[in-house]
Design a protein around this nucleic acid. Sequence first.
DNA 1: TGTATTTGACCCGC
DNA 2: GCGGGTCAAATACA
Length: 321
Amino acid sequence: MENLAYGSRKRVIEELAKGREIAIQLRRVLNEGGGDNNNNNNSNGSSSSLVAVAAATPFAEKLVKEVLMSFTNSLSFLNDPACESHEVVSDLQQIRDTNSKSEDSLESNCKSSIVSSKERRGCYKRRKTSQTWEKESEFPVEDGHQWRKYGQKMILNAQYPRSYYRCTHKYDQGCRATKQVQRIQEDPPLHKTTYCGHHSCRNLQNPEIIVDSVSPSHDHSSMFLSFDNSLPTPSKQDCPFLSLSSSSVKRECKEEEEIAIPDLPPSSSSLNNDYLIPSELTFDDDSQRHHALLSTTLDDVSLYDSAELDDVLGGFLNEIR
DNA sequence: TGTATTTGACCCGC
DNA sequence: GCGGGTCAAATACA
């Protein structure tokens, strides 16, 4: 964010602020419409709240649509090549190219294109420091993704070896996500997991949306989202990037659910369809839970219960500022 | 037999 | 030159 030109940065802040205000309105609407289930547990509460929710839904949809529009605009501003960090461009470009060029890049990264398999050992282009974030937990965290261990090393001044994992779909889907797990201490056991890069793969094992992030104490530059693109791509009628549709999507509430600023798609000028940012709005009236789902053909971002929107957007603003 | 893990070698950034 | 990240052959496992 530090690299943002002042004008674009201002616009981003304005858009996010606008989105936040709209989200606050939305929260009120949803709460008034029966979002507060705890107060509607009497015999008539459920049906009446459903009616209220149904009545409020069109307006709520409109509000959420505006929220999503704001986010989309913000993203498009951030996609301005002048604003986008070199790092992200490079990283995403590599992701984009991976599927079609994985073999080529492997070769091109070698000093010699004609080498034996034995000589190719260790022939790779080490990624420059990319966006990372860390989690500490008593046990290595189950984050819903499939990982394959590809290395382990003793680290200087570290008591325990560090394990290296890559996404199982590195080769079949070109996913470049990796993580490192290192035990920090024995008793009580404590592991630090460092994630590097985000998943561009479909997570077939666990289709639910996983949001990886950092605690507030972490540097915001390392904030990241982990996405899942297993959901259908909505149309893009409402704006070049945005559309609304309806489906039923439920999200499991996880203990460590956090929302983070996603890394950005390539600049809009170079966008191909894979990187457009449509969005999807979901209202699950039956369960009286409200969700808005932002999805991209590459990634999906899920939001939430209405009460979370304020926090989420407020967090975005704080991060920007 | 196919897949995952282990482990030493290799390469790159600092 | 050193330390850390990745590769890939060898090995383990289901």
